[in-house]
Amino acid sequence: MIRAPGSPARETSASWRTFVDGLVDFLLPGACVLCRRAHSPGRGGEATEDSIVCGTCLARLVPLALPQCARCGHPRLSLSIPLPIARPTAAGPTWPSAVDLPPCRWCTRLDPAIRIVRSVCRMDDGTGGELVHALKYQGWHRVARPMARRMARLDWPPDVREERAAVIPMPLSTQRLRERGYNQAEVLARALAPHWQVPVWHDILRRERHTESQVRLTPSQRTSNVSGAFAVPAHRRAMLRGQHVVLVDDVVTTAATLNAAAHALLEGGARIISCVTFGRAPDSGDRAASDDDSLRN
């Protein structure tokens, strides 16, 4: 006999599942991969599948200070540059527009082919660096979910939202991929793509040669290190031609790697390249996180 959807048998089965799930949570409570403290899945404002990181640690992410450059997303002001002051007018105070603010020093390092860059948080304060480390070096793939959720919430101009055709993860060299076993940028890209409802083109961009780690290199050394390191395979150029694509990486420091990858995509036929990263390394002259008024309240 076929039972109705709301039959007692189905309700009893659902009750048992709820009981078993609750028992498992009681006996084996979830633990945050960052602070190692036990917490209940689904709490702290995140979905259950994101509970590998607790809400407290996610709340400790430190966003980039405002105001930000409209193109590169970097904080526009340093300790040596005063805050913009409203100009009194008959209609009320008028705040300066982006063109009234001092020129952005970070934008000057970007390749002209790059339309826009966005990042979620600082890497020198809060839990941003710990999240990246957990994904990149400890193999915690599931931390990419809350990371990608925040990348998806970043503000983008209308043309980028309308035109982005796909996300392209920053590739690793064959040697680095063999050592690590996975590409953290691709893990992030696959978690981000559903939020934007675009595909992941993981084989459009290749790293042609192994490069030295950028961590201890100067800005000029970083540029030389990755120069010519990327290429678009000939059989993928037709797919890329004329498209606006978004490069995805875990962290941006001097933008040397983004520039090299963007140059290869442009040569491969892309029309516009935008970039998104989870973290951004501090730059000389940046305000400290404690100087950001939005974090004092």
Rank of each mutant, 00 (worst) to 15 (best):
G6Q: 03
G30Y: 08
C32G: 06
R43N: 07
A47Y: 11
T56S: 04
R60Q: 10
V62S: 01
A70M: 04
R71D: 07
S78Y: 07
P88W: 13
P88V: 05
A90T: 15
G92T: 11
P102D: 08
T108V: 12
P112M: 00
R118Q: 03
S119T: 05
D124E: 11
D124A: 07
G128I: 08
G128V: 02
V132S: 06
H133F: 14
L135D: 04
K136N: 08
G139M: 01
A144Q: 01
R145D: 13
P146T: 07
A148Q: 05
P157A: 10
R161T: 13
E162K: 14
A165W: 04
I168W: 02
P171H: 07
S173M: 09
T174F: 09
R176C: 12
L177R: 15
E179Y: 11
R180H: 13
E186F: 02
R190A: 05
A193G: 02
P199Y: 05
V200R: 01
T211K: 07
V215L: 11
T218N: 06
T223Q: 14
S224E: 13
V226Y: 05
A229K: 11
P233Y: 13
H235G: 09
A238M: 03
R241E: 09
Q243S: 11
T254F: 00
L258K: 02
L265V: 06
L266V: 12
E267L: 15
R280W: 00
D286G: 04
S290A: 13
